[in-house]
Amino acid sequence: MRGMAETTDGDGLTVGQTSARLGVTVRALHHWDEIGLARPSLRTAAGYRLYTAGDLERLHRVVVYRELGLGLDRIRAVIDDATTDVPGALRAQRAQVAERIDRLQRLIGGLDRMIDAHEHGLLLSIEEQTEIFGPRWDPEGPVKARRLYGDTPQWRQYAERSASRTPEEWQAVADDIAALDRALGEAMGAGVAPGSPQAHRLVERHRDVFAAHFPLTREMQVCLARVYEDDPGFAAHYDAVREGLAGWFRRLVDADARAHGIDPDTAAWDGGR
């Protein structure tokens, strides 16, 4: 670029005028001037920079390539280096843009799943739910749960897990639950007593299995065991495994809670133990 000349006849645009015309910031123009990418050719007697028509043409090219995502060094090469393979540079930039678009599309997909999970809980079709959880499964269960617990931290934790879980992973969760149910039924049939070492292990196993949904403290487990016994739907589920299983399991949970210094009668869902 030629050296800066002085003018007194009003030729050229000021930095502010150039910024407004090209839609770039004054700061960007100053930076491009400092690194020698696009310098104003003129300066007034008072020392103000002025951009000529030729300067504006160069700036326009800089802006075009910058909007295409090229870095300033690459822009300089494209504009000033006659040996630069411009189509090749643009193809390389296009490949990078396409890769970013692909990442953004995957990000949008992940955001959509997270939104759906927070709003609906279970991201499975009714057919998938029935196949995984069995014919007694109520597809309205997650809807009811969202209505009751949608504002709780536990629902948010459940949704975050659900958003990334595949049908195969849900099948593994369902298999763990079914195996636990069978173990509880067998233990009840074998006469396992509340407060016994085997009973404590079963209560611990229940918390581990339930952690697929969200972490469960002992106090929360006491509250959940109450629901298992009192709610007709849960009670029917456990009665189908073994008659009276829900009540028996509640006694196991209560005994385990007492062994850890928790009074089942005052246990609260938001308790920290």
Rank of each mutant, 00 (worst) to 15 (best):
A117T: 00
W170A: 11
V227A: 14
V222W: 00
V24R: 02
C223H: 11
R258F: 02
L13S: 01
A178P: 06
V78T: 02
E119C: 02
G121M: 01
L202E: 01
Q105G: 07
E99S: 11
W137K: 07
S19H: 03
I35M: 06
Q198R: 15
A174F: 02
P197Y: 03
M114E: 00
R106M: 04
H200P: 08
G12T: 03
D265Q: 13
Q96P: 07
G16I: 02
D175A: 13
W170C: 06
W248L: 13
L56K: 10
E127L: 09
E219G: 04
R113A: 13
R91A: 12
F249T: 13
P197L: 07
Y158I: 01
R2V: 15
H120T: 07
R21M: 13
A193T: 03
V173H: 09
H237I: 10
D116H: 02
F133A: 04
H200D: 11
R49P: 03
T152P: 08
V173R: 08
L37Q: 07
A92W: 13
E168I: 14
D270I: 09
A95V: 04
L252M: 15
H206P: 00
D102N: 08
T266C: 09
R250D: 01
R147T: 12
D265G: 09
R136F: 11
E57C: 14
L59M: 03
H260K: 04
G150F: 01
E243P: 12
W155V: 14
D9T: 09
Q198A: 13
E219Q: 08
Y65S: 00
A225E: 06
G191M: 01
A236E: 02
V15S: 04
G71Y: 04
R2A: 11
G244K: 04
S19E: 01
E119I: 07
G110C: 03
